[in-house]
Simulated assay, not measured.
Amino acid sequence: MIIDRLGDPTPEPRTPAVGTDTGRAGTAVDLWQLRVDHLAEGDLDLSELDAEERDRFAKPLRVADRLRYGIGHIALRRLLAPRLGVGPAEVAYRREPCPGCGAPHGRPAVDGPPGAPHFSLSHSGDVVLIGIAARPLGVDVETFPLATTVHEVTAALHPAERAEIADAGHAPEAFARIWCRKEAYLKGIGIGVARSLAKDYLGERDPSALPEGWAVRGVPTAGGHAAAVAVEGPMGRVRTSWLPASFVTAASAAGPV
């Protein structure tokens, strides 16, 4: 059941406290977010998913996980389709080589002509986040974790990140902001958390210490969540839009606003 309500406000953005990049030159990034809690499984139009995606959706996942997966993959197809000049069901994907071992299990990419857009997808809690740009990128959204998780995972991070989190009193929000920045970068380079979490600095205090050749910034999102985007090269304009729940239903048009 769709519960888009007339007059229901868009979730109020939460702007990261520090570390935002305001430069205008560089790669433009378009971000879209959807609220998972405004939809039920029966609302989704699964007809545009490919066989692999439908099989994944049919697996005995938790309802919330299945819902996030379905919403994210339907929305991604409908956002990519007009940029590729095809229907959502015709969007095809491939895996790029892993930067660690060279095997084809790296960053997901559009299986299309040269110049096809790069994309990244993340979902957690009540939010799905999708990013599209002309250069490789990664996005991540996370709910604020439990205090025990903060202490357990912080120990594995870069020393400067550990210091920033400690200075913030190990607050779940501070941890989540830094974790999202790290996850976005690791997804952007295509290796994920297989890379040591202590190797790269993705904190908020020292932009000069960020990985060479990449830009990262926090993304305003719904309360109780943190989000970030990383892009190869300098980052330009970042536009964030909230999509209505109806974007992923059978009645939705394929193109975004």
Rank of each mutant, 00 (worst) to 15 (best):
P88E: 02
P108A: 13
V36C: 04
C101F: 01
V110K: 03
E53S: 13
T148D: 11
E53G: 12
R62C: 14
L80E: 09
D111C: 12
L146W: 11
G72V: 01
L137Y: 12
V128F: 01
T27I: 14
V86W: 03
G85A: 09
G85T: 00
R78F: 07
V128M: 13
G72M: 08
P60D: 07
G26C: 00
L31C: 06
D50L: 04
H123P: 12
F144Q: 08
A64L: 10
D126Y: 08
V86F: 02
R135L: 08
L67S: 05
L146K: 10
I130A: 13
A133K: 06
P114Y: 08
P60Y: 10
T27N: 14
I130W: 05
A25K: 14
E53F: 03
L121F: 07
L61Y: 11
L121H: 04
R66L: 06
L129G: 09
R66G: 00
R68I: 04
D43N: 02
P117N: 06
H118S: 07
V141M: 12
R62Q: 04
G70Q: 02
V110T: 01
G70C: 00
R24Y: 15
L31E: 10
R95Q: 15
V127Q: 03
R56A: 05
G70T: 00
D65G: 02
D140S: 01
L49C: 02
A25V: 10
V128E: 02
L137S: 04
V139A: 06
G70I: 00
P136H: 11
A103W: 11
